[in-house]
Structures are given as C-alpha cells and as structure tokens.
C-alpha cells in the first residue's frame, strides 16, 4: 500500500537519511546462527505456552459447541456431560425454521456494519480534532465524552426512549444506529492512538502544504491501521452481541437481531438451551470471519521507521 507517510519518509530529509531496511532484513544480516537458534527455542516455548492457554480459554466454547448438539433436556445436567450421548445434528437444520434465523442474521449484520462504519469514521475524525488540533475548551469537551462512558446505560435508558418515541424513531433500525454510532468509546480509543503518532509527521505534512483534512486522510489514517482495525472489530462485536438495545428499541419481529432471536428460546419458566447454544455457535461465525480478516492489520506495523519518538 502506498501512502503519504511512506512518501514523506522517503522525501523529508530530517526523518531519515535513507529508507531503513525492514527489521527482518536487518536481523538476517547480523550474526546469524546464535540468534536464530535462540529465536527457535523462544518460538517453541511460546508455542507451548500458547497451546496451554488456548485449551484453557476454549473450554466453555467447547461446552457451547457440545451443548448445541444435544437435546434440550440433556444440556444442563449434573454432573456436566462433555460429549453428547447422541449427536443431535438436526438442531443445526431446525433452527432455520424454528425462528427466521437468516433474517435475524441479516438484520444484525446490517446494524453492525452501518454502526461500525459510522463509528470508525466519525470517531477517527473527532479523535484528530481532540489530539492534533489545539483550541480552547477541547479538554473539557473531551472529559464530557469520557464522563458519559461512566454512566450506566440503565440509568438513562428511559429518558432516551421517551426522546426517541417523540421523534417517532422507536421500532426502527434508525434508533439503534443513532444511539450507537456516535459513541464516545471510538473517539477515546482513536484519540489515544493518535497521541502516539509523533506530531513531527503532521508538522512535516503542513510544511508540505497539506490541509488539516489532508493530513488526517493521507498521513494519520494510513498510520493508524492497527487502531482502526481494533476499533472496527470491537464495535462490530459489541453491536453484534448487544441484547438490551435491540430489545428495547426493536419491537416488530421482522426487525429482530440474532441476540433477540436466541432469547426467544427462553420461556417464562424454562428455556431451550440446546437451541440457544446452536444459535450462539452460528452467531459466532461472522465474528470469526471479521477477526481473521482484521487481525492481519495488527502485524503490519506502522511506518515510523527512522523516527526518533
């Protein structure tokens, strides 16, 4: 990916005399064998640690998977049964007809994608204002942002609902989008990340005649890929797994999201746990896909080579 930052690095003499070789290359040119041997041992140790961790972290997920293949009355047994006695594969075919699962998935995806896009866009814009532009009242405003994160939603849920009702927005996706797309979380996250980007980069771009908007789009955004990826991932996951918001605002069944659909297996006195777990397994898949796509941005690293922070 070519971007302004790399151009800058190549052009601006004060940034770096010559393009720095990638860390990989440099490592290879230095004393090879002891380093590599050491690296290999470290790798083995790390793999070992990770393998143990993964097992410990996946146990509940395994239970979820195994329960999704049981009859409802076989799920919550004492003692716990790790492997189903009969594999009820039909849960995975039944769920599509028991509830309109496909429609729920579409609704969830629609909400999650729109909210994530808006949150990332407006969040990174506002974060630039909060971190790279200096103007009076900025920090107070920023504290107001952080402050609202500290208020539990349960406290202002009803005033918010009354407002939405008066605007005629309840029972629609718009209500949820408006509520969740402008959260303070994204602004805060991006602002903190932008703080780590040296101001010299912006300065250089200003000297080159870029406007503030140009700096945001062509210098800062390309540099903040890991942060953008994590914000997008976390926003997506939170929206996807949100239950209370859709529950309060979406009444018509055709607007329901996956999380609401799963809860419809909970009755007044009992619940169909096998179906809930089946649905949960299905609903995790989109998150995994997003994660696998997004996670490669975490290793790309940002192009500040040659910078003295």
């Amino acid at each position: 990916m070519t971007n302004m930052a790399e151009d800058l690095k190549a052009e601006a003499p004060f940034l770096s005399g010559a393009p720095a070789p990638a860390p990989e290359d440099r490592r290879r040119t230095q004393r090879e064998s002891p380093r590599e041997r050491k690296k290999r041992t470290t790798d083995v140790v790390i793999y070992g640690v990770l393998a143990v961790l993964v097992v410990a972290l996946m146990v509940p997920f395994f239970w979820m998977l195994s329960s999704s293949l049981k009859e409802n009355n076989q799920v919550l047994t004492v003692p716990i049964q790790w492997i189903p006695s009969d594999f009820v594969w039909s849960n995975y075919t039944d769920i599509w007809t028991r509830i309109p699962m496909l429609g729920y998935l579409q609704n969830s995806l629609y909400l999650a994608v729109i909210i994530t896009c808006l949150q990332v866009l407006t969040g990174s814009l506002a974060a630039y204002g909060f971190s790279k532009v200096r103007f009076p009242g900025r920090d107070v405003l920023f504290l107001a942002y952080i402050g609202t994160i500290a208020v539990p939603w349960q406290a202002y849920m009803v005033p918010q609902y009354i407002m939405m009702q008066n605007l005629g927005l309840t029972n629609s996706f718009n209500a949820l989008i408006l509520l969740q797309a402008f959260g303070a979380f994204g602004v805060f996250l991006m602002r903190q990340y932008y703080m780590t980007i040296p101001d010299e980069l912006c300065e250089a771009a200003r000297i080159d005649g870029l406007s503030e908007y140009g700096i945001w789009a062509r210098v800062i955004l390309p540099l903040s890929k890991p942060a953008l990826a994590s914000l997008a991932l976390l926003t997506f996951v939170n929206t996807w797994n949100d239950y209370m918001g859709p529950f309060i605002y979406l009444t018509s069944n055709r607007l329901w999201t996956v999380q609401l659909g799963l809860r419809s297996f909970v009755g007044q006195f009992d619940a169909e746990y096998a179906m809930i777990m089946t649905g949960s397994v299905i609903s995790v898949i989109p998150i995994l896909v997003i994660f696998l796509i997004g996670q490669r941005y975490f290793i790309q690293g940002i192009a500040t080579s040659g910078m003295k922070g």
Partner: peptide
C-alpha cells in the same frame, strides 16, 4: 477552533442528541 470543531462535529451532534442530553435528563 473552527478546524477542531469541524473534525469533532459529525460525532458530537449524534453524541449530544442521543447520549449527552438523556444523561443530563437522567
């Protein structure tokens, strides 16, 4: 100030209307 606010505004409008005001009401 102007530049700062234009960056913040898209987010701030939504934040003000749907979070800050209900919070103050609460």
């Amino acid at each position: 100030t102007l530049i700062g606010w234009t960056f913040i505004l898209p987010n701030f409008l939504g934040f003000l209307a749907f979070t800050l005001i209900p919070v103050i009401a609460a």
